[in-house]
Design a protein around this nucleic acid. Sequence first.
DNA 1: AATGAATGAGGGTTCATTCAT
DNA 2: GATGAATGAACCCTCATTCAT
Lengths: 194, 194, 194, 194
Amino acid sequence: MDGFQRRRELKKRNILEAALALFMKHGIQKVSIAEIAKEAKVSQVTIYNYFESKHNLIHEIFIYYVDRAVDDFESVIHADVLFPEKIKRLIFKKKEVANQINEEFYQYLMKEYSEGNYIEQIYAQRAIPYFNQLLNEGKEKGYIDPNLSNEAILFYIQMMKDYMQKEEVYQRILPLTEDITNIFFYGMLGKRTE
Amino acid sequence: MDGFQRRRELKKRNILEAALALFMKHGIQKVSIAEIAKEAKVSQVTIYNYFESKHNLIHEIFIYYVDRAVDDFESVIHADVLFPEKIKRLIFKKKEVANQINEEFYQYLMKEYSEGNYIEQIYAQRAIPYFNQLLNEGKEKGYIDPNLSNEAILFYIQMMKDYMQKEEVYQRILPLTEDITNIFFYGMLGKRTE
Amino acid sequence: MDGFQRRRELKKRNILEAALALFMKHGIQKVSIAEIAKEAKVSQVTIYNYFESKHNLIHEIFIYYVDRAVDDFESVIHADVLFPEKIKRLIFKKKEVANQINEEFYQYLMKEYSEGNYIEQIYAQRAIPYFNQLLNEGKEKGYIDPNLSNEAILFYIQMMKDYMQKEEVYQRILPLTEDITNIFFYGMLGKRTE
Amino acid sequence: MDGFQRRRELKKRNILEAALALFMKHGIQKVSIAEIAKEAKVSQVTIYNYFESKHNLIHEIFIYYVDRAVDDFESVIHADVLFPEKIKRLIFKKKEVANQINEEFYQYLMKEYSEGNYIEQIYAQRAIPYFNQLLNEGKEKGYIDPNLSNEAILFYIQMMKDYMQKEEVYQRILPLTEDITNIFFYGMLGKRTE
DNA sequence: AATGAATGAGGGTTCATTCAT
DNA sequence: GATGAATGAACCCTCATTCAT
């Protein structure tokens, strides 16, 4: 990548981050191109030069955002800790890029353009392999019932991770961390002491 | 309530339902008053006569919607079936008024006007008492570990219920119902056969 | 006038006063029929039954208002005080119906419908005769230079009276009352002591 | 000021004058942004780009207008004519920018936003110093009774000047100029011939 | 005679996008 | 490649007025 390209990418990144910040603060629909331009200290037209349309900008931001989320995910998977701790982190760790906005992106892209399961595609391609590897490890080491399908567990963890990102939920759940974890591993019936 | 009031309420309901349908299809912000008026076959001004502002309309729809959701919830709680079946229904039963829109309402009201945890307030007042009753029943009958706090279980069920409402999730999860339920009751470690 | 007519007139008066009060507080254009209806505790349609249109309502209010202003004027003219005191009162006395709104009525009727010099017509018919009588009295008693035309003096007094009605002017002018009166009687050159 | 700025200012001026003309013809509230846009041959949004809101536009027009009025005033004060002629001109000279609209501006700004005595402030800062100088000159040269306060005289002239701007008054008063001037200098009692 | 309900027309304002430099 | 300026379309909302009871 030469100097030109380099500078171009830098500016793009710049706009991307400005827009992402604004989207997360006010929601996608409430943020106008004018505001993004002002925040990124460029002209509106520059944004159009780089992204062609607001929809496209959102699209690229979304990819950028998913990429960072997956990075995040991988760093946990590959951490040098015990299996249960990995699970705990996956579920409870606050993401750098809060995915509170996930929902909104999803809805926006869905409703607006039905570009469909973009999340799935990207996630599937990058994250799921690691995930399966993790779960298999869990099953081998006796942390997970081998009869359970990976899909079901994936769903479970995904759900909890998503849910935990909502600020208002997070605050309410913090004191219950212990119970939540127990339910996850031992279910409603609780830990049995044979 | 006299004839006037009756008709008024009817018309209000009419507008409410039209708006709710459109909101669920396209998202709140994408639906204009003009569209709602056309769908409900009244003039825009009539909507303003009834609801005073778009924000107010959304607010009333929201309450209407939460009310129906709680009704739904109660009907499950009081059904004449075994405890595990109640839980299953709570989690997996599709709501009449899909709460896919819940998220959006929540965000809308939060970001726009910070009228604060409205859901919580209403839910807490109406639903939680029943819920505790249900869980205590579960603990007595040996379905639930008595050491688990009701809050944690409430969170769990709430989370699953919410999640299941999303259409794209629901489809993906249907074949996994059995596993999901098992995880819920027995945890990752699975059912132990002593 | 029978009972019906009587009640009708009463209600009309009621609406008139409500509207006049609102007009004086917020200006003509800022007051909606709906607001007047609410203030007068009648339905909007009732106002239309009595006045046919907003323009007509304004028109009638205007006449009502001018009538009261002329009454006011006459009460001063016929008061049992010395000539200079009458002049002083004419100029400085705050009107019951503040004529701050005069200007606006005038402009409204002028611009909107160019029904022209309505004020003049009414005023001329009712007030000017008394006025001439007053000025002639003043000339006879030596208070006024007989060479001055009544028109010029009328203009002068009218101007000062109008001007004094503006609240912000009135406050500023109060401490200058003495000087103003002196200028009026003796001019810029001041009282000469021969 | 570079070319950009220059053109910008020109266009602003352009819009300003179009709006001022319309305001003077139809009154402030009756003129819509759309009409101004059409008259100035720009799009509505361009007006918003320059002035941000209708209120702001009015505000700027008002300042523009007051500025020109004060310029006008100064040109009379500094004219090379005798003192009485200056006074006469001040009172009787038609302003370029007829201040018939003054009243309306005043009321509009007052009622709508109570941005307070803006006229006074600007006028006081720019015009009053010259005015005092003029009156002192008048007193020295024996045209004005030195016992009269400048404030009272200022009020008097201001009032007459304002009043004379109203078209319907102006026409009526023209034939009375002589008398009016005499009253101003010699009062009701008239010129005394000692 | 009086009212609640309804409406067409219009007003101020915002926005994504394009033009001209 | 970057910008300030400009715009058509749309949105929320208000108002004087009419309809139906």
